[in-house]
């Protein structure tokens, strides 16, 4: 099969088939019914694969306590990706100035102040503060699906400012956490391959900010703390990360005072499927019309051969 991999082609195809709905801001778009159907089916497939694990389901809004972001060192690592929520705290008498500036097309930042919430940057961030204290012997396993925000406007369809992540978090001793991460790394690749996607895993690093960020990325890579599952979506030579696995050691354990029964700080790891990217990988690989996808893929997602 000959597939032309460019960001423009994917974007145009998705729009032409009403799978995504442009709204005028790069990295923000609506999702059409066909896109959502595949996303929900894929998410349900992840649920089936994880069914026996006994994870506790948690759902959070796409906003996060600002203090959690501040404590987590996110702003030290990714100040350029963070998004804080601002609002108007003024009196009646100040409204005309705000309103006047808005309608005159001028900057209205001066009448905005930071609120107590930020946009959630990663699906797992709201979870860690809930575990402060001594964890049970079996640790914790959490299953969630959250909208996340990254300030990286781009016309490239897989680089979104807001998207959903189906995420799992494991909290426990180092052995437990690493074994779980390794189990899911294999499981994640197999799950995507079972949908006819050419997926493979590799060591990765996060897009940390600045020169210090280069050092953090090198350290992360050297310690093999991050893995990604990659599939060609907009480029054959630079495949897109559709699933990401992060091992934090006791980073969150120390910050949120999460301990094991022995008194040591608990370790954590998480993995997340970028749901829109997984869906785009399916459309790119099998075509823009799900009814024409291979029977085995349709059976896997829809449970029939429609």
């Amino acid at each position: 099969m000959n597939i032309e991999y460019t960001p423009e082609k994917l974007y145009d195809d998705l729009v032409a088939h009403k799978l995504i709905i442009p709204v005028g801001v790069p990295g923000i778009f609506g999702r059409g019914a066909g896109f959502e159907d595949v996303l929900r089916r894929f998410d349900a497939l992840v649920s089936r694969v994880a069914q026996g694990d006994g994870a506790e389901v948690m759902l959070f809004p796409p906003t996060l306590d600002r203090r959690v972001l501040e404590k987590s060192e996110y702003l030290d690592s990714f100040p350029h990706l963070a998004g804080a929520v601002f609002s108007f705290f003024g009196k009646d008498s100040e409204l005309p100035r705000l309103s006047g500036a808005v309608h005159a097309g001028q900057s209205w930042e001066a009448w905005q102040k930071m609120t107590d919430v930020v946009l959630t940057p990663a699906a797992c961030y709201p979870v860690y503060p809930t575990f402060t204290g001594i964890i049970p012997e079996r640790g914790h396993l959490v299953d969630m699906q959250n909208w996340v925000f990254r300030h990286e406007p781009s016309a490239e369809p897989t680089r979104m400012q807001a998207f959903r992540v189906r995420e799992f978090v494991r909290v426990g001793t180092p052995d437990v956490v690493v074994d779980w991460r390794d189990m899911w790394l294999q499981r994640g690749v197999e799950l995507l391959q079972s949908l006819g996607l050419p997926a493979h895993s590799d060591v990765a690093s996060d897009p940390f900010f600045g020169r210090g960020g280069k050092m953090l990325a090198a350290s992360q890579r050297e310690q093999k703390l991050k893995f990604e599952v990659l599939i060609p979506v907009i480029s054959e030579s630079a495949p897109t990360a559709v699933c990401s696995f992060n091992y934090h050691h006791d980073h969150f354990g120390k910050i949120f005072d999460i301990k094991t029964a022995s008194g040591a700080f608990a370790e954590t790891a998480c993995l997340g499927f970028g749901l829109e990217r997984c869906v785009m990988a399916l459309f790119k690989t099998h075509g823009m019309v799900p009814a024409e996808w291979p029977k085995a893929v349709r059976e896997k997602l829809w449970g029939d051969a429609r």
Binding site: G212, M215, S219, Q220, H251
Partner: peptide, 11 residues
């Protein structure tokens, strides 16, 4: 020394 602290040390 954490990774973030090592960046500050480097700078």
């Amino acid at each position: 020394m954490s990774s973030h602290a090592s960046v500050n040390v480097m700078l």
